[in-house]
Structures are given as C-alpha cells and as structure tokens.
C-alpha cells in the first residue's frame, strides 16, 4: 500500500506555512533562520514526492542541490548574525533601529 501523493502535498504545505508564519511573527533572528529552513525542507518533500509520482529522478537531483544551497545559506546567515551580535549584542530584529525596518 502506497501513500497517496496528496498526503505528501498536505504535509509539505503545513510545514511550509509553519515556516512562513514563523518568519513573519517571530522576532529572534535565529528562529527566523530556522523557519526559513522549514520552508526549504517543505520544498524537498514536494520534490521527492513528485519525483516518486512521475517515476523520474529529476526531482530528487534537485533536492541534492537544494540541500547544498540550504547549508551554504545557514553558514552565511550564522556568520552575519555572529558579526551583528558582536557589534550590537542583540539578535532581536525589533531592536534593529538604525535603519527603519
């Protein structure tokens, strides 16, 4: 018995929306970064599910690239957050007041 495609899509939709809402309402920049990761992983669920459905590997190949990009994004993002924390000692986006948000 196989899991129907729509279940995967619902799962990925829920994960994706969790990520979007997280980015929009959370104020800690690390949590925002984690929420972006949720969005990217929801995408990976989609790709793998569609890839299985169509019986070709293009989608799974895409996932490899997406994972690599996500890793690079986290590396750059944490470096920026670290540098910011050193100068401002805060990672709350509401306290970034020099430039109007």
């Amino acid at each position: 018995m196989t899991v129907p495609l729509s279940y995967y899509l619902m799962l990925s939709g829920v994960v994706f929306l969790t990520g979007v809402v997280g980015v929009l309402i959370r104020r800690n920049i690390i949590i925002i970064l984690l929420s972006v990761e949720l969005m990217l992983n929801a995408t990976n669920i989609n790709f793998v599910a569609f890839s299985e459905y169509f019986h070709h590997v293009a989608g799974q190949v895409f996932v490899f690239f997406a994972l690599t990009v996500a890793a690079a994004e986290v590396a750059v993002g944490l470096a920026i957050i670290l540098a910011l924390h050193r100068t401002k000692s805060t990672i709350n986006v509401d306290e970034f007041q020099l430039l109007r948000w």
């Binding site: 980015v23 920026i80 957050i81 986006v93 430039l99």
Partner: peptide, 12 residues
Amino acid sequence: PRSLEASAKYFV
C-alpha cells in the same frame, strides 16, 4: 553596525 544591520535584513 549600520552595514551589518543592512546585511542581516537583506539576508533574512
């Protein structure tokens, strides 16, 4: 601080 803040906003 201003440059890093710009960078963080751009990144997010």
